[in-house]
Design a protein around this nucleic acid. Structure first.
Lengths: 236, 236
DNA sequence: CGGATGCTACGGTGGAGACCGAAGCATCCG
DNA sequence: CGGATGCTTCGGTCTCCACCGTAGCATCCG
């Protein structure tokens, strides 16, 4: 089968430490310049340039030139899903070998971070738990479902729920949640179209703010209040 | 982050052509001997032995010794999901470059095959379509949902629907479908716990039969009738 | 226009690992 | 017991590719 060669090629591209580091740093959905990615991969710009050319040629990354900068981002949600699924296996492997030692530097990441286009970490898991507990969502290992009350709740805080379904859900209404295993909490959180919309909404409402040069996000005072009032979620 | 190294290691393991071939041949969920896998990877047994040792050590494969044979299988559904997601990206990449040339040898595979633990190919897609058309299932890009009538339908043909939920769906009932993009049809089909149960049921009922040494499955005359009567699905 | 910055192209070096042949160990069978 | 089969270990070869230094091209800025 010819598809086997392409499969191996894609996996091998993700399998180099430097490239993996670059891809990893793009998992928050933003676009970064070649220099920033070189730093993320721990290599010189000229080496990174070669790697980035390969990744773009293979369709893993999309690139956009802006002046003398070249901004790279993940080419599609499919690439992000691939990364997530590899992380899941890697997480299983790592936990099987060692009792999961993580440094204190990861504290911010563990509290709240973006995972491509949705929220992860303790915040992401807590939100998912709250939605389930409140009867707003059902979440299994393979799929998630937004209930009528969940649709109403998200509509109340100003989310354009119908718009999400119109854009992404071609053949049905109201589901389109997707569980995404959290590597730090080892519990599913809310991904998919609904997760992405909720995350974007938190940014525009000023509930969370990106931290410089990391996937971690900071919860603003306004966010503390919002998460408590709407979802009953309080994070230390 | 230390997790980055593990990530790269896992991806690199999948990124070698020989190992990719072996993993690919295990995607039907069966367990194969080291010799069979060597043939699948196009390498000698002694080379395969080294590869398999690495894959087992990394937790991608599980191994069971039976006499002088060592049977290897995918270690978990997570590994299968990882493979699928890489295939999805590879499929995107390949289709973007070439107009997708597939040989006639793949005809059987395109008609019906197993995808780890569920059905794929024209049969898999047709079943998913039929379930959606009949109002038995809703299927979005991120998730799927079995409706009440779908539960009844599967119960009628003798599927232990409640048992599935008891075993796999810890926190909810009735969803647990998962869409899985079909690389030949480029359409979602039915995966997840429900897809696995349906596939297993088709085997035990004698509707489909494995072909020797391939992921393709043959539809028996009994199956032709069953698929037509229950789902209204007819395949050439 | 001239210097600084961001990125890419080229050439050479070094190391990792995929591969096989030969040989050794366990298991099955007559 | 002795030959055959399945699998693994060891040693050596060879190819591939990640890496960087140097240099060149485009863009921005004073």
């Amino acid at each position: 089968m010819a598809s086997n060669a392409v499969f191996a090629e894609i996996a091998a591209l993700a399998g180099d430490p430097a490239r993996a580091g670059m891809l990893h740093s793009l998992m928050d959905g933003r676009a970064l310049t070649a220099s920033e990615l070189a730093r993320a991969g721990g290599i010189t710009p000229q080496t990174a340039s070669g790697h980035l050319a390969k990744l773009v040629a293979a369709g893993l990354l999309a690139v956009e030139t802006q002046g003398r900068h070249r901004y790279h981002r993940l080419a599609s949600p499919a690439v992000a899903r691939m990364m997530e699924s590899i992380m899941e296996v890697a997480s299983d492997a790592a936990s099987g070998r060692r009792p999961v030692v993580v440094g204190p530097r990861d504290a911010a990441l563990r509290t709240a971070r973006t995972c491509y286009d949705h929220l992860a970490g303790r915040l992401g898991v807590a939100l998912a738990d709250a939605l389930v507990a409140g009867g707003h969502m059902e979440l299994g290992s393979d799929a998630g479902l937004l209930t009528d009350s969940g649709m109403a709740l998200l509509g109340d805080i100003g989310l354009d729920v119908e718009g999400i379904f119109a854009r992404r859900g071609k053949r049905t209404g109201r589901l389109l949640c997707r569980p995404c295993l959290d590597w730090s909490e080892r519990r599913p959180h809310l991904a998919g179209a609904v997760g992405a919309a909720l995350c974007a909404h938190c940014f525009t409402k000023g509930w969370i703010r990106r931290s410089e040069g990391t996937r971690a996000v900071a919860i603003t005072p306004k966010g503390q209040q919002g998460f408590r009032d709407v979802f009953g979620v309080t994070l230390g």
